[in-house]
Design a protein around this nucleic acid. Structure first.
Lengths: 157, 157
DNA sequence: GGTTTTAATGAAAATGATTTTCAATAAGAA
DNA sequence: TTCTTATTGAAAATCATTTTCATTAAAACC
């Protein structure tokens, strides 16, 4: 199904080649779709958008490509507890990108926020240190998420 | 399959009756199993333990009963991101019970902790208030979780 | 105690997101 | 252009959980 190669972002092409991977149309389109969106897209969402560009690309390929992009740290996979993964483009440095999610449990709308990020990082640091020591854990990651009702969904009730 | 009734905890019997529900052996056993354990059990785990007491109880009933107990606020359902729900007995008041999880991504071991709970509650309160105002969300719940490697899994690598 | 109503049950089938299999295709090296 | 093998799509497989439906048994009512 692929056509020609080497169009998409140079760096992307380079990063792929670097690990013996190939640049294909499917990969360009999937990355493009998630990159253009500022929503938190499910695999299905991505699939639908990809199809609008090229009807020949299968859902399986979308899943595989999303996995690949997550492993390349170009996307992050989020879990909002509704049984389907969502994907979000990682922009800038890890520091820039650090944020949390506010999830509407009705319509699944998600807002990214960075409020109190300083205080939070400080508290997390303390907590991580204490937990590492107390329970002999090496902490690698953390998850903070708020759940509630967005404006529209609250009014609808 | 049930036998006689009215043995299990009075209050449990009472709470069930209160909403037109029935006290069955399956429900007693499921509650008993989760109550005795201080692990975070999956439905399968509960099923296996239940079977040791009564081979006639099906997996479907275990799922249904876990749902019921969660709705009755006797259990809480946790999601550690491995695609299966876990269940934990809620003890004492909501205040007493407030804690977070430290999850080993290798062996899935989970530790409950309450360290820095005061500071955390304070920060969460501030954050909740700010987010409510800023994004017009009514916040109902939050999730804080740390991921890492436990002692044993770190050494094994 | 026996009857009756209907909630609860178990087995099997259905669901839904994701993964695997496998033969066909095409990226990119030679 | 040829050749190697990564990538692909379609279909089947997985796996946790839910639904369906006919059967059974709590517990309310004689």
């Amino acid at each position: 199904m692929p056509r020609r190669c080497g169009k998409g972002p140079r760096w992307f092409c380079g990063e792929l080649r670097g690990c013996g991977r190939r640049l294909t149309e499917a990969r360009e389109i999937v990355l493009g779709v998630v990159d253009k969106s500022d929503e938190h897209l499910s695999a299905e969402d991505v699939f639908r958008a990809v199809r609008r560009v090229n009807r020949g690309i299968g859902l399986t390929t979308v899943y595989r490509t999303l996995d690949l992009l997550v492993n390349m740290n170009l996307l992050s996979r989020c879990d909002f507890g509704d049984g389907r993964a969502r994907y979000e483009r990682i922009r800038g440095t890890k520091e820039d990108h650090h944020h949390h999610h506010l999830v509407c449990t009705e319509c699944k709308k998600v807002v990214n926020y960075r409020d109190f990020i300083e205080e939070e990082i400080e508290l997390l640091g303390k907590t991580e240190k204490a937990l590492s020591r107390k329970f002999n854990f090496t902490i690698r990651d953390h998850l903070i998420q708020f759940y509630g009702l967005c404006d529209k969904c609250r009014q609808r009730d």
